[in-house]
C-alpha cells in the first residue's frame, strides 16, 4: 500500500521541487490555537506536517522546542489529545502527510500496540522517535511498519558508512538527515557539508532525504532545498509562535495567521529554490 508520504514525495519528485516540512508542537500554546495552526499549514505550503508529541524531558531538543513542549503540557496536552488533533485535521485534509515526532516513553507507557492502532485510525502516516536507534528496532519500528505506518529514521553526521545500512534498513517514507551534531534550533549547517552528506546517503538508499536542525530562514531553507528532497523547519516556527504569546502565555488575536505567513515565506523559498539556482 502506498502511504500518503510516499505519494507526496513521488509527486514532488515529478515536479522537480523539494518538500517543505513544517514542525509544530501539539497543543502549544493551547489545543485550539494549535489546531488552527495545524489546519492552516498545508495552505501555507507545508508538504509534510511534523507534529511534536510533547515530552517533559526532550533530550534532543533545544530551548525553543523544550519551552513549547512544556507550554503544551501545562495547557493539558496528552497523547490522546495529540491524536485527536490529527483526527480533526483529517476531516478536512486527507492528503497532507502527518508524521508524529517525539520520544519513546509516552508511547511505551500507552502501550505500543494500542498507540499504533490509535495513530493509524487517527490518520497518522509516520513516526519519528528520537531515542530509538536501530539497535532497538523491535520496540516500535518493526511493529509500526507492520501496522502500515512509516518509520522515519534520523541519520546524523556521526552515522558513518559502516553504520548507514543498519540505520536505513527499516527506514521508510523518507530519511531525516540531522545536518549538525547537536540539538534542534542550534547551529546552522554549511550547505556544502549537507550536499556531501546527502550524496553519501543517496549512495545507500533510493528514499527521499529531508534535512533538518538549524534551518531558520527562507534563504537557509532554499539552500537546503537545492541539495535535498526536503527542508524541515521546527524551532523557527515554534519561536515565531512563542513571539505571539502575551505575558500570560496566551496567543494574541490573529497569532496563527501571522505564524502561517512566516511559514509561507519558508515554503515559497523551498519551492522556488531550484528555479533560482538554475542560473
Amino acid at each position: 500500500m502506498t502511504t500518503r508520504l510516499e505519494t507526496r514525495f513521488a509527486a514532488l519528485g515529478k515536479e522537480g521541487r523539494a518538500a517543505f516540512v513544517a514542525f509544530i508542537t501539539a497543543g502549544d500554546p493551547d489545543q485550539e490555537t494549535s489546531f488552527e495552526l495545524l489546519s492552516g499549514l498545508a495552505a501555507a505550503g507545508a508538504d509534510v506536517i511534523e507534529l511534536g508529541m510533547p515530552f517533559t524531558d526532550p533530550m534532543a531538543d533545544g530551548p525553543a522546542i523544550q519551552a513549547s513542549s512544556l507550554r503544551a503540557l501545562k495547557a493539558g496536552i496528552t497523547m490522546k489529545r495529540t491524536l485527536d488533533l490529527v483526527r480533526r485535521l483529517r476531516q478536512a485534509d486527507n492528503t497532507t502527510p502527518v508524521v508524529l515526532m517525539g520520544y519513546y516513553n509516552p508511547i511505551y507507557h500507552m502501550g505500543v500496540e494500542n498507540f499504533l492502532a490509535q495513530a493509524k485510525t487517527a490518520g497518522v502516516d509516520g513516526l519519528i522517535v528520537v531515542d530509538l536507534p536501530p539497535e532497538e528496532d523491535d520496540e516500535l519500528c518493526v511493529p509500526a511498519l507492520n501496522a502500515g505506518l512509516n518509520f522515519i529514521r534520523l541519520a546524523t553526521p556521526t552515522t558513518d558508512d559502516k553504520r548507514l545500512p543498519a540505520v536505513l534498513a527499516n527506514t521508510s517514507g523518507f530519511v531525516y538527515y540531522v545536518s549538525i551534531n547537536g540539538i534542534t534550533g542550534s547551529a546552522s549547517p554549511e550547505a556544502r557539508d549537507v550536499a556531501q552528506a546527502i550524496a553519501r546517503i543517496k549512495g545507500h538508499t533510493s528514499l527521499p532525504v529531508a534535512v533538518g536542525f538549524g534551518i531558520r530562514t527562507p534563504d537557509q531553507a532554499a539552500n537546503i532545498a537545492r541539495a535535498a528532497d526536503g527542508a524541515v523547519v521546527g524551532s523557527a516556527i515554534v519561536s515565531a509562535l512563542a513571539a505571539e504569546l502575551d505575558a500570560k502565555g496566551k496567543a494574541r488575536p490573529g497569532a496563527p495567521g501571522r505564524v502561517l505567513e512566516f511559514v509561507r515565506t519558508l515554503s515559497d523559498a523551498t519551492h522556488t529554490a531550484r528555479e533560482s539556482a538554475a542560473v
Binding site: 534532543a60 536507534p133 546524523t156 553526521p157 552515522t159 558513518d160 540505520v167
Partner: peptide, 8 residues
C-alpha cells in the same frame, strides 16, 4: 535508548 548521533 539514545539519539542516533550518540549511538556511534
Amino acid at each position: 535508548f539514545v539519539a542516533e548521533t550518540l549511538m556511534p
